[in-house]
Amino acid sequence: MSSDAILRVEHLTMRFGGLVAVHDLSFTAKKGEITALIGPNGAGKTTVFNCITGFYKPSEGRVALRHGDSAQWDQLESLTASSLRSRMHGDGALFLLERMPDYLVTQKARVARTFQNIRLFRGMTVLENLLVAQHNSLMVASGFTLFGVLGLPNYARAEHAAVDKAAMWLEKINLTDRADDPAGDLPYGAQRRLEIARAMCTDPVLLCLDEPAAGLNPRESAELNDLLLSIKNEIKTSVLLIEHDMSVVMQISDHVIVLDYGTKISDGTRDQVRNDPKVIAAYLGVDEDEVAKAEAEVGL
């Protein structure tokens, strides 16, 4: 297993009663890359996401994330053997996400996510949405509310910085003009972008996007590509995304993992995956043999 991974998912299994949604899934997401998790409807992609971000507790398996250098992985087995959730080591740390509740996955392990059906705070303004995302840092700055109620200046400074950061993101997603409108009032594409910006305001090391391009038109889809590439290249945040829209996956992903019926059927670069007959079979819903035959006929 490569040591430049930021996230390692190992033997992940998730059962709901008798239904096995994800079965013995292992993959890694590399630091600084965009990793895509694709697969037909019902393949278990969102379940994997929910296990990584702590919303579901996996039935079996390990989900590990590192901060800092790759030497952190050396202590993975000893951390697993202990009953701890995480261990700091030097400049970095190692986290076992399956042991952490959802909010700590974001707060401590710094994994942020978006949702397939957009979950904005619709009745709050765009700016407020971005400020809620900075809750934990602002909480500390407000002395866990105490200094804030008394109106001490250090909180005012922190809030000013938080608004600046939000303004920076609004600039990036072209929503500066709508900063003071309710989030529910934005058009669909803008809501998608805002949800990504909101997740980024938590300062994540890994950003998990659940179908960010769903429902976008081609122009918005292209804007999304630019946004994701800038998150990868300028902010250096690793990205894990679930996607249906192949144009997004194939243009920006460094690494693609294909799921079908809860198991991994392919794993590699986008070109490797694109030409994998198993993948084509899964997407077209036909046998591998038939795919091979069809490919032979068209001369692939």
Binding site: F55, Y103, V132
Partner: peptide, 14 residues
């Protein structure tokens, strides 16, 4: 207020 609007989103933001 964020909790009132969407609890799950709140948790996803730490």
């Amino acid at each position: 207020e964020a909790l009132r609007e969407d609890e799950i989103a709140c948790r996803s933001l730490g």
